[in-house]
Simulated scan of single mutants.
Amino acid sequence: MLVREIMTTPVVTVRRTATIKQAVRLLYEQDITAAPVVDTAGRMVGIVSEMDLLRGEFGANPRAFLRPEALPTGGPPALVEEVMTPRVATVGDGADTLDLVELMITTGVKSVPVLRDDELVGIVSRRDLMGLLAQGDERIREDVLAALRDCADTASFGAAVRDGVVELYGSGDERSARIAGLVARTVPGVADVVFPEGLVS
């Protein structure tokens, strides 16, 4: 499965000169946890997350401190560019989703912007990936059958799905069965593909 098949597009972005309050409101209203930050030309210059925006937004309550000198000093940041992460982990839209998952695991990031050349074309979050895994078997079966119908070599195959595992059946030869297996594995939510005994050796 390729990243472009699962990414969210168009991308909700925030200007680097936006205020913290504007960015907080945007992320909250869009129900997202992070957004790419762009300059006036629309080029991505960073990414800002909920955690970034929370820094300094809640003033200290003097009752929480035993000694007055323990109170923090200095005002909170005012603009997104002051709290954004400038070095952004990105992935190409033609990359394999497995590579994206590995990137998220190794870096700990929750959202990864997707580029085509140097253009921002999408974003993938952990929530997007969890949504794929949570799809019901009937939806997966419908998507597998649709994908199989799109290929002349596999149009005659049927499918049954249980807990994300696709069983392919049909009257095709071993070559067409192998192609059907490859096609089925590209469908979001498919955990594995199996065949009746003897269809593929």
Results as ranks from 00 to 15, higher is better:
A18Q: 02
T19H: 02
T19Y: 03
T19G: 15
I20T: 04
I20C: 06
K21S: 13
K21I: 12
Q22M: 05
A23H: 08
V24T: 14
V24Q: 15
V24W: 11
V24S: 12
V24L: 14
R25H: 13
R25P: 07
R25I: 10
L26N: 06
L26F: 12
L27G: 00
L27S: 02
L27D: 01
Y28M: 08
Y28H: 12
E29H: 12
E29A: 14
E29N: 14
Q30S: 14
Q30N: 15
I32C: 02
I32K: 01
I32W: 00
A35T: 05
A35I: 03
P36M: 11
V37G: 05
V38N: 05
V38D: 03
D39S: 06
A41Q: 13
G42F: 09
G42E: 09
R43Y: 02
R43P: 00
M44S: 06
G46Q: 01
G46N: 00
G46W: 01
V48C: 08
S49G: 06
S49P: 04
E50G: 02
M51C: 10
M51W: 13
M51P: 03
D52N: 03
L53N: 00
L53K: 01
L54V: 11
R55V: 15
R55F: 07
G56W: 01
E57T: 14
E57F: 12
F58I: 13
F58L: 13
G59P: 10
G59T: 09
A60T: 06
A60M: 05
N61C: 07
P62N: 05
R63E: 15
A64G: 09
A64S: 12
F65P: 03
L66N: 13
L66M: 13
E69Y: 14
E69T: 13
E69S: 15
E69H: 15
A70F: 13
L71I: 14
L71M: 15
T73P: 03
G75P: 05
P76A: 15
P76I: 01
P76N: 06
P77K: 02
V80N: 12
E81Y: 06
M84L: 11
T85N: 04
T85G: 03
T85W: 00
P86F: 07
P86E: 12
P86N: 08
R87N: 14
R87E: 13
A89W: 08
A89H: 09
A89E: 10
A89D: 10
T90P: 03
V91L: 04
D93S: 11
D93W: 12
G94S: 07
G94R: 06
D96F: 11
L100M: 01
